[in-house]
């Protein structure tokens, strides 16, 4: 018993143990790396799903916005079809009259009477007088449909990995257009836009933040109020203020609004991600989101970020998010 173990054997055992530990360390590292990748992809999906949730919520409103003009434009086109049928009958009667005149036949008086009777029957004055208005109104309706569908498409579009220069005032107008059905019954919209240079940003994501702020502002207003949107330049930064005359927030609420999954809205109304995402998106632009609110007075959110966009480090960060 108690035979001494040869030194070489001890060393061999130790080597084995070390190799084993290294292998496990490598495996643990690989696990961590894949967990990190998963987290990054989950976060990017979260950004996108919040955007989709927001757009989905607005889509019903957009559909309503579109249904009104589509309704009256279709009705107008049907009426126009009836006008055209009537006018063709009238034109045919006139042609008969003209032909009769040319032939100087005895039927002229009768044909002329026919034309007059027909003019009465189809209410010719009204038809002729209404056509231009009908076409103008239908055109206006179709432009509205075209605009809102285009604006929604711009918003649903996912940004590429590259920053681009954008007109921020125009971006705000598109956000207002997409959210219009949520806004119009709640608030008068007041715009105070400054002349801004083109601003480097991920337009889809800044648009998502603006949409969130606008919908929040409308939901904070109980009956009817005002939403004021101001833009400006502060040194190398651009800023956007979204103010509402809504119910405001208590300090205990303000403390938590940027936490993920924090919401004061009813179940199904909010994901609790909107402002958290706004915070993340502003950070990825090297910018910030600030809030000032008083209970009963209203709330102002300010977005501020460099006109030249985020620095390289953040762009790489954003590339990962965009995937």
């Amino acid at each position: 018993m108690n035979e001494a173990i040869p030194l070489s054997e001890v060393l061999e055992l130790e080597r084995c143990a070390r190799r084993d530990a290294e292998r496990r360390l490598d495996a643990a590292n690989a696990d961590l790396a894949s967990a990190l990748a998963e987290l990054q992809s989950a976060q990017s999906k979260l950004v996108h799903s919040d955007k989709l949730a927001c757009i989905g919520q607005l889509a019903a409103g957009v559909a309503h916005e579109v249904n009104n003009p589509v309704g009256y434009v279709s009705s107008n086109l049907n009426t126009l079809g009836e006008y055209v049928a009537d006018l063709l009958r009238y034109i045919n009667a006139c042609r008969t009259l003209v032909i009769d005149c040319a032939n100087e036949g005895r039927t002229i008086v009768e044909s002329a009477r026919n034309v007059e009777t027909l003019a009465d029957a189809i209410d010719l004055d009204n038809v002729v007088g209404d056509i231009e208005a009908l076409l103008a109104e239908s055109n206006e309706g179709l432009s509205r449909v075209r605009k809102i569908v285009g604006d929604l498409r711009d918003f649903a579009h996912v940004d590429g990995p590259d920053l681009a220069l954008h007109d921020i005032n125009q971006l705000i107008d598109k956000a207002i257009s997409v959210a219009w059905n949520e806004l119009k019954y709640k608030a008068d919209i007041v715009k105070e836009y400054a002349d801004l240079p083109p601003v480097a940003c991920f337009a889809g994501r800044i648009g998502q933040v603006l949409l969130n702020l606008l919908v929040n502002a409308a939901q904070a207003i109980v009956d009817r109020g005002e939403i004021r949107i101001r833009t400006g330049q502060d040194g190398h930064d651009v800023w956007v203020d979204v103010s509402d005359t809504g119910c405001g927030m208590a300090p205990s609420t303000i403390e938590r609004i940027f936490e993920p999954f924090f919401t004061t809205k009813d179940v199904g109304q909010g994901t609790g991600l909107g402002l958290h995402m706004a915070y993340q998106i502003m950070r990825s632009h090297d910018g910030e989101i600030r809030v000032h609110s008083e209970v009963g007075m209203g709330t102002t959110f300010r977005l501020q970020w460099p006109i030249s966009g985020p620095t390289e480090g953040n762009k790489v960060d954003d590339d990962a998010n965009a995937r």
């Binding site: 009256y72 009705s75 107008n76 049907n78 009426t79 209410d123 009204n126 009908l134 109104e137 206006e140």
Partner: peptide
């Protein structure tokens, strides 16, 4: 609240 709807219905019903 849509004037466009007014006009369209006026046309249809007026006729």
């Amino acid at each position: 609240d849509e004037p466009g709807v007014h006009q369209a219905l006026k046309r249809e019903l007026g006729r």
